[in-house]
Amino acid sequence: MIVAKRKPFEEIKEMIKDYKKVLNVGCGTCVAVCLAGGEKEVAVLNAEIDMARKLDNNPIELGAQTVERQCDHEYLEELDDVIGDYDAVISMACGVGIQFLAERFPDKPVYPGVDTCGMSANQAVGWYEERCRSCGKCVLGMTAAICPVTMCAKGLYNGPCGGTNKGSCEIDTEQPCAWFRIYERLERQGRLNNILIYTPPVEWNDQIPRTLIQPGYKKPEKAG
């Protein structure tokens, strides 16, 4: 899933300092699961803002609404009748959701409540580890399902480099060396042949904003 981290409170407070009536919109999917921007986090942030603004003698009226997904028109629709009452909006969704929300309400200033931190797995409650950079050219078949783009700090395709250190990466002993692990797993599966041959430079597919159309579907007549 996409994971995010709540922005520092002072940063959020500064962004909305000139507004008297702000709607805080949570997202009920990825950022709710990773405990950054769901219904509960919206309520916590609003309570913090409310208290801080009272202390500053600059009271604020706050609304709270959490939609199922901000990256989907279907769920944003429920804001249509609500949003007009507010001077500005905080979105607690990921970078995708907030932009989609802002596109729907182009007259409304929209501010991010979170920093989007990538695509990660739930290792334990509150602990997420990145696994994919969405490069658009998956090589996991070759690398025993360990991503060298994400898990190798240098993103090497022909590793490990000379900085590998007893199974760790040179950047940090706590950071496993992706290529050491790739080697171990391929060896275990008898597939080392995969990485004996040179992998040529990658044709990067993520250098322009991308769109995706699944087979059997087409681009809508009027997008966005």
Partner: peptide, 13 residues
Amino acid sequence: DHQKFGDHPMAKG
């Protein structure tokens, strides 16, 4: 200029 205009269009910018 963006790399897509050149002779290595899939290079990482």
